[in-house]
Simulated scan of single mutants.
Amino acid sequence: MLSYLHGFHAGNHADLIKHFCLFALIERLQKKNKPFIYIDTHSGAGLYDLSSEQSQKTGEYANGVARLMNAAVTDNALQRFKQQLEPFIAQRLYPGSCYLASTMLREQDRAQLMELHPTEIQALRQNVKSPLTHIHHRDGFEGVLALSPPDIRRGLVLIDPPYEQRREYQQVAQCVISLLKKWPQAIVAIWYPILTARAAEKRGLSEKMVNELSTTLDVASLDVRLTVDDQQTDVGMVGSGMLLFNAPWQFDKDIHSGIKTLHDILSEQGKGHFHCQWLKESD
Rank of each mutant, 00 (worst) to 15 (best):
S3I: 09
S3A: 13
G11E: 06
N12R: 01
D15W: 02
I17N: 00
I17D: 03
H19V: 07
L22S: 05
L25Y: 04
E27L: 08
L29Y: 03
L29E: 11
K31I: 11
K32D: 14
I37Q: 07
H42I: 09
Q54L: 13
E60Q: 09
E60G: 10
Y61Q: 10
N63H: 15
R67N: 14
A72P: 12
V73N: 00
V73I: 15
T74D: 14
R80E: 15
E86D: 13
L93E: 12
G96E: 00
S97H: 03
Y99L: 06
A101S: 04
T103G: 00
D109H: 08
D109Q: 06
R110G: 01
A111G: 08
Q112G: 11
M114R: 04
T119C: 00
A123R: 09
R125C: 13
Q126E: 14
Q126H: 11
N127D: 06
P131C: 04
I135L: 08
R138M: 14
E142F: 01
L147M: 09
D151Q: 13
I152D: 06
L156K: 08
I159E: 03
D160K: 01
P162S: 11
P162G: 05
Y163H: 07
E164C: 00
E164A: 04
Q165N: 14
R166Q: 14
R167G: 11
R167D: 14
R167A: 12
E168H: 03
Q170D: 14
Q170G: 14
V172D: 09
V172Y: 07
A173T: 11
A173E: 15
C175H: 02
I177W: 08
I177P: 08
L179E: 07
W183E: 04
I187E: 03
A189L: 07
L195S: 00
A197I: 09
R198W: 11
E201Q: 12
R203H: 14
S206D: 12
K208Q: 14
V219H: 12
D223R: 01
D223M: 01
V224H: 05
T227R: 03
V228R: 06
Q231T: 15
D234S: 15
V238M: 04
M242Q: 09
L244P: 07
Q250K: 12
Q250L: 15
I255F: 07
I259F: 05
L266F: 08
L266G: 05
G272E: 02
H273G: 10
W278L: 05
W278Q: 04
L279N: 07
S282T: 09
